[in-house]
Every structure is written in structure tokens, then in C-alpha cells.
Computed example of a mutant assay.
Amino acid sequence: MTIAENLIVTGLGITTIGLFAGIVYQAVSEAIDRRRYPPHGELVDIGGFRLHLNCVGQGTPTVVMDAGGGAPSITWGLVPSEIAKFTRVCTYDRAGLGWSDPNFRTPRTSQQSVDELHKLLNKAGIEPPYILVGHSLGGANMRLYASQYPKDVVGLVLVDSVHENQMTSDAWRRIQRQLWLYQVMRIANQVGVLRLIGELNLLPMLKDIKQETQKYPSAVQALFDTYKSYCYRPHYWATVYSERASIGKSFEQLQTVISLGELPLIVLIQGAKDPQISDERFQKWSSLQLDLTKLSSNNQHIIAENSGHLVPLDQPELVISAVHQLIQRLSTQRIFYD
């Protein structure tokens, strides 16, 4: 063998050993994470894969909550435990997020999420009526659910929800750049590279999230390590990629939801502009949020003056109060369910 050939063979050998070590490191670490951060609630098989569901509290109607794009149910922070003081509340993780198994049989559109949530509630025996609460992308999913199962839903809370008319050419370009990054992170996760970088505190995304959580109560800060463990799972980034790549299709599905009739609707809108967002973008977002109130003739909107997009963490009391208002309104109207 020539010197060049020896170098190539040596390089390939080192690369193979490195990849094998990374795969083993990833597999062992994932197993440790699953023991260290067991799911709260239950894992329900809805047909070849399991979704994580956590229901607490007692009472009716049942509040069902769906988190934002790429976000696990723990990002609701303190909201579910407070709602559980006056009624039953169920949070769940969409397929591939949090503690739920992935499902890549079809693209991760809003309709797919609605179909899976409906199966989950039926399989778990969570009977209607429901008050649906959705943040960001979760708002789109809950809006679609309410339109397709109107007899089951008695109230809807949209928390700074996405809107089908929000996309601009600049926004689409940002998404394309993000999709490339998600693919890289998915591959890096499979061989343990992303986990290694993250554990060395060198991953900018996790550093930013950890810093951001410092302003929240200690109970919310404590969720960071659990959230980080989700980010190290290979299917997590594949799921985020599919949700984001399918956002155009999800918005097409939303365009069919023109009216929810007289369904009690509360729209919570962020009031504190992110410094990185232009005034024009912020004004457009606010205008689209107000447009969501037109979905129902029985509507109310509330400005979260001290919140950015993460209203459930910035001002959780507003989400809790909105749900409580709807329940009181139903009680006043003498709508009771046994």
C-alpha cells in the first residue's frame, strides 16, 4: 500500500469507530433519559404507535390542550395544574414530540394531528364535552378539531394562534433555511453528535432556551432538563421538520374553517413585541389575531400586555382565567353534563 492509501484506510477506520461509538453513546444515553424522565400520565396505543396523555383534576367539561409547533406538552408550564383545581384537564404530546412515539406514515399536518387526537380521546375514554385550548400551531389544530366535531366542543381558547394568512415570501424563505437545519440536526442526533455538543453547553439553541427559562418560576425552570432530553431524540427533529415542511398544507386545511357559529371563543394575543421582530411584522400578527375573533359571533379577545409569543409561560394566569370564564359562562347558561 502507498502512504496515501494507508492514510485513507486509517481515516476510514477512525471514522467508522467514531460513528459506532457515537451511535452507542446515543442509544445508551436515550435509555438513561427514559428512566430519568418517565412520562406523567399514560401512553395510549392508537394503532401501531402510542401517544402520551396526562389528565389531572376532576369536573366537566374536560379541558384539552395542544402546544405550539415542535413543542411538548410540558411547555404549558404551570397552566394545567392550576386548571386542575376547578375541572379536569388533559394535555398530550403530538406524535414524535415529548413522550409520544413518532408517526411518519403521513406528513405532520394539522388534519393528521386532529385525527390522532380524536382517536386518542376515544381510546382513552375521555368523553366530551371539551373546552379546547391551543397555543400557536396547537391553536390551528384545535380550531380544525372544533369545526369537525362541533357537538363535542363547548368552548375554544386560541393562545397567540397561527393564522393561515400569516405567511409572506420572507417567512417562506426563513422556513426553508430552518428545514435544512432540522435535517442536519436529525442526522447529528442519530450519531450522538448533537447530544455531545449540547451536554458541553455548546449548542446555541439550548443555551438560549436555558437562559430564557431563568426568568420563570423554579417549577418551570426545572422542566428544562426534560425538554433537553426530548431534543436529543432522533425522531424529534424529523417530526419538527415534517410539521414545519407541512405548514402550507395545514394552512390550506384551515381555510375551510370559515365559521364556528356561536361557539364561545376567547383569543389571547401577545402584547409585548420581540425586539428582533419589525413593527410591521408585529402589527400584521396582531391584526391577524383579531381576525380570528370573527370565527365566532360569541367572541372575546384579551391582550397579554406583558407577554411575547409564549403567553402560557409569560402570563399563565390569562390562560387559566380564560378557561375559567368559559366554564362559568356555561354554568350560567345552565348547561350541565353528567
Score class of each variant (00 low, 15 high):
N6P: 08
L12D: 02
G13S: 02
T16K: 02
L19C: 00
I23T: 04
V24A: 03
Q26F: 00
A27W: 01
V28W: 03
I32W: 09
D33T: 09
R36H: 10
R36S: 14
P38M: 06
G41P: 02
E42Q: 08
L51Y: 11
L53F: 09
L53G: 10
V56Y: 10
G57Q: 03
T60C: 05
T60A: 13
V63G: 02
V64Y: 11
D66F: 15
A67S: 15
A67H: 08
G70K: 00
S73L: 01
W76L: 04
V79H: 05
P80A: 00
S81K: 10
E82N: 08
E82G: 11
I83G: 02
F86K: 04
R88V: 08
V89E: 03
R94F: 06
N103T: 03
T109N: 06
Q111D: 08
D115M: 15
K119H: 06
K123T: 14
K123C: 11
H135K: 11
S136A: 04
S136I: 08
R143H: 04
V154C: 03
G155N: 08
G155E: 12
D160M: 07
V162I: 14
N165Y: 12
T168I: 01
W172Y: 14
I175E: 07
L179M: 08
Y182Q: 07
V193Y: 06
R195L: 02
R195D: 02
E199C: 01
L202N: 04
L203C: 05
M205I: 00
D208M: 01
I209M: 00
T213P: 03
T213A: 13
V220C: 02
Y227T: 03
Y230N: 00
Y230R: 05
P234F: 00
Y236F: 08
S242E: 10
E243L: 11
S250F: 08
E252S: 11
Q255W: 09
T256I: 12
L260S: 01
L260D: 00
L263G: 11
P264G: 04
I269C: 05
P275Q: 03
W285T: 07
S287F: 14
D291K: 04
D291Y: 02
T293D: 11
T293S: 12
S296W: 13
S297L: 10
I303Q: 13
Q315P: 12
E317C: 07
A322M: 07
Q325E: 14
R329H: 11
Q333P: 07
Q333T: 11
D338S: 15
